[in-house]
Amino acid sequence: MTRTVYVNGEYVPENEAKISIFDRAFLMADGVYEVTSVLGGKLIDFEGHNRRLERSLSELDIKKPAVYDDLLEIHRELVRVNEVEDGLVYLQITRGSDGDRDFVFPDPETTEPGVVLFTQNKPGLADSPVAKKGIKIISIEDVRWGRRDIKTVQLLYPSMGKMMAKKAGADDAWMVQDGAVTEGTSNNAYIIKGNKIITRALSNDILHGITRAAVLRFAREAQMQVEERNFSIDEAKDADEAFVTSASTFVMPVVEIDGVALGDGTPGSRALRLREIYLDESRKAAI
């Protein structure tokens, strides 16, 4: 089925969608994005994603597009017309274009931001067989720019990290800076030791994950301790369990780090329980 997508004010078939070659997202990765999960035809934590989107736009001095207040309606319409039961809605807002290529930002008073949304149908998203066996990760150097807290479309190095992991026979990579894990290529990273979840504290060094915030809240409610601090790959290898979180994978157990199995090499009970709690609570709050 040909999807309907949203491009700069219009719902169009995906094969008819067009943007300017001078759009700054295309020329300079000058844009931000969000990905919202859909379960049972409803949006998961839309308000959280919307708040982070607003912050990203502000940090890059990109003005809100004219349709900003209509984004929930647009998300819902795309879910409806594309008959998405389980899947994702991708949203991208760019600084737009104003004539020729230039390093200087175009005048925001005369340039309307670009807005693109599309859906991805992923039947059984919450019942991923990968979660039942866990993922293997490798460690790589983190050489990204310093503002990882802004969810920009600058994703080349994370993509390269995914490919490094694939080449090594693993599923993903954790990035390391100054001896400490920052985050995964498209997710936040955690280890569990005893009853304590350890994850890097929020700063400009990592993305302020929407799923991260919810999972840590649920963990505390489940009487688990949470310690937000740096940890090394060696400490991770010695952990009882590990996992990652993101909007598209929810809570995903990690069973191997740089070839070293965690525990018995199968998903840990705490990570699986957190996944179960997150999915249950998110479905209840979905809109």
Rank of each mutant, 00 (worst) to 15 (best):
T111H: 00
L156H: 10
T119W: 06
M164Y: 15
L78M: 12
I191K: 00
E112G: 00
K193E: 09
F103E: 04
V181A: 05
D102E: 13
E141D: 13
V181F: 06
I135N: 02
L78D: 04
G184V: 05
A66K: 14
D171A: 07
E141W: 05
F103L: 13
S159T: 14
T185L: 09
T94V: 01
P113L: 11
A170C: 13
Y68N: 08
K166M: 08
R76D: 06
Q177N: 10
Q177P: 00
G99A: 11
V153P: 00
F103M: 10
P123D: 15
W174Q: 02
I93D: 05
G124H: 13
E183R: 03
I74P: 04
G114L: 02
N82L: 04
P158L: 12
G99H: 10
G124A: 11
A66G: 04
K64W: 09
E85M: 11
F105Q: 04
I140Y: 07
D127N: 14
L91E: 09
D100Y: 13
A173Y: 05
T110F: 03
L91Q: 11
A173L: 08
D69A: 12
D149W: 01
V84H: 00
N121H: 14
D86G: 10
I138A: 03
A168G: 07
E77T: 13
V116C: 03
G161S: 11
K122T: 09
K63D: 03
I74M: 09
M164D: 12
P123R: 13
T152M: 06
I138Q: 00
H75Q: 12
W174P: 00
G124D: 10
G146A: 15
D69H: 11
L125W: 03
D127S: 12
E77Q: 14
N188Y: 02
L60T: 00
M175E: 02
A131M: 07
P106W: 07
K166A: 15
K63Q: 11
T182M: 06
G96K: 05
Q92L: 15
D98M: 10
E112R: 01
R76F: 05
K132L: 14
L155G: 05
V143R: 15
K64M: 13
I192K: 02
L72A: 13
W145G: 09
V116Q: 10
P113I: 09
G146T: 05
